[in-house]
């Protein structure tokens, strides 16, 4: 596969079913000619890793509104590491308290987006993360 091509998996880990944002972003990125797939709701970090491997994703966009972001994102990093997929970059969007942004960044997350973030800003962050 083309290494310069951006391939994004938008994924919802945990048990939270709110997928409005995830679907809107998936559709928007696809319309910007970025290859993007949505995992569906209620996926475990292992399932997300598998889906990412299947499409050779280089970006995973996590959408989570339940408050379980710190635990689930840490687990996802572990899963990717175990499968030797640590080149895959992770961005996170959802209901994320200001105080948790730092913690997510130090896990290695390349961007954290709260409510009200524009689609353009998310697209730009994805392109920047990919270009690093």
């Amino acid at each position: 596969m083309d290494n310069n091509e951006i391939r994004v998996l938008i994924a919802k880990p945990g048990l939270d079913g709110h997928d409005r944002g995830a679907k809107v972003i998936t559709r928007y990125l696809s319309e910007q000619n970025i290859k993007t797939k949505f995992s569906g709701i209620r996926k475990t970090p292992e399932q997300i890793t598998e889906l990412a491997a299947k499409m050779d994703a280089n970006i995973i966009g996590i959408s989570i509104l339940s408050g379980a972001h710190l635990e689930l994102v840490a687990e996802l990093f572990d899963c990717l590491y175990k499968k030797e997929m640590d080149h895959v970059k992770i961005l996170v969007g959802g209901i994320i308290p200001e105080s948790d942004k730092e913690a997510l960044n130090s896990l290695g997350v390349k961007g954290v987006f709260g409510p009200g973030t524009s689609l353009e800003e998310i697209e730009l962050s994805i392109r920047n993360a990919h270009g690093e």
């Binding site: 945990g14 048990l15 939270d16 475990t44 339940s66 408050g67 379980a68 689930l72």
Partner: peptide, 10 residues
């Protein structure tokens, strides 16, 4: 195990 990170959250 599947529930651990979500207990008491919402």
């Amino acid at each position: 195990e599947i529930a651990q990170s979500e207990v008491g959250k919402v």
